[in-house]
């Protein structure tokens, strides 16, 4: 039994099939990358896992239990956290309040939630901004806040949606270091990313999709050398 398994998941929006018959498994402790060109269905996959969209067909299992029938807020409760590609900070709350909002999932006590939030803020190097309002943060910090908030819910599986998009090379290096640190604490990670360099560096395995269908899966180097992937990214002439 796999830690996480998607079985033939399909999502149709009217006549458009965004994700078609996609299957993959993720093992505990790995960083699993999902790549694909714009509009290939990566974020839709996340929205299906986190139950923001109902599945058209297919099944999703987490630790052996079927989860595609649960309501969206229960997904977090069973241990799957997520971040959003377009960050969604709780704007008029401070950084620590944002993280506390996540921590309250596992405790009802304000002081416990605050303590937990402080730890996670330190872990994510946001200590300097603890009492700043989230709406005043620049994008790289907002992305990190997004991760911190998800971590506060104590996920076993973390879905990261384009954590490095829009960051300069130095910022994205810091983000990658953070992702590695999170993995080292025992959290399994599924990450969507556009930037191939980032993905090649941190993923244990990569799933490449285009038009909602799998075009390659395997070790980063194998996937990068698959003609289908090169075609999808660079065009027919380079394959």
């Amino acid at each position: 039994m796999s830690f996480f398994e998607a079985k033939a998941i399909t999502k149709k929006f009217g006549g458009l099939t965004a994700v078609s018959n996609l299957s993959f498994t993720v093992e505990q402790g790995e960083i699993f990358g999902v790549i694909g060109p714009n509009g290939s269905g990566k974020t839709t996959v996340f929205n299906m896992i986190s139950r923001f969209f109902p599945l058209t067909s297919g099944e999703i299992y987490f630790k052996g239990k079927r989860i595609d029938t649960l309501p969206a807020h229960d997904i977090c409760k069973i241990g799957i956290g997520r971040t959003f590609q377009v960050v969604k900070p709780l704007r008029r709350m401070t950084v620590i309040e944002n993280v506390m909002a996540g921590a309250f999932l596992r405790t009802g006590s304000i002081s416990k939630a605050r303590h937990k939030a402080e730890e996670i803020i330190e872990f994510c190097n946001l200590g300097k901004y603890t009492d700043r309002e989230a709406k005043g943060l620049p994008i790289p910090l907002r992305k990190r806040l997004e991760i911190a908030r998800a971590l506060a819910t104590e996920p076993e599986l973390l879905l990261l949606d384009e954590t490095c998009a829009g960051l300069n090379p130095k910022e994205s290096e810091a983000a990658i270091a953070l992702i590695r640190r999170i993995r080292d604490t025992g959290v399994t990670i599924i990450i969507i990313e556009h930037i191939m360099k980032v993905m090649m560096g941190i993923s244990d395995r990569i799933l490449a999709i285009n038009f909602g269908k799998e075009i390659a899966m395997g070790k980063p180097q194998e996937v990068a050398n698959t003609p289908e992937v090169i075609k999808a990214y660079l065009g027919d002439a380079y394959a």
């Binding site: 986190s50 923001f52 969206a72 807020h73 229960d74 997904i75 977090c76 409760k77 956290g81 997520r82 959003f84 969604k88 900070p89 709780l90 704007r91 008029r92 709350m93 909002a101 996540g102 999932l105 908030r149 998800a150 506060a152 819910t153």
Partner: peptide, 11 residues
């Protein structure tokens, strides 16, 4: 502040 973010935090 953000209903979707709240849902993603298990609220």
């Amino acid at each position: 502040e953000d209903q979707d973010a709240a849902t993603s935090l298990g609220i």
